[in-house]
Amino acid sequence: MNFQLNGQSHQTVAGTTIGSLLAELQLQPERVVLELNQVILNANEYREQQLKEGDKLEIIQFVGGG
């Protein structure tokens, strides 16, 4: 299954949840903020949410900035 991850095409198996994707990428959920198809995801609710073909997922974090 194909979806867009941070602007790039990404492959994963059907049924992948956002929680398992974060685990696969070794990202700590409390340190990132997520946006799926331009809608901000509630941190308490997205872990079991399954990704669908064509989804656009953004994983964002704080970096140094002025």
């Binding site: 990202l27 340190r31 903020v33 704080f62 970096v63 900035g65 002025g66």
Partner: peptide, 27 residues
């Protein structure tokens, strides 16, 4: 101040939050 950017999926860096004591500094 801090900025928000996409995580580099291939090379995830540490979040800036690890280095800022938010009890002490207003983010």
């Amino acid at each position: 101040t801090v900025a928000l950017r996409r995580v580099d999926i291939n090379n995830p860096a540490d979040s800036m939050l690890q280095y800022i004591d938010t009890d002490r500094y207003l983010l």
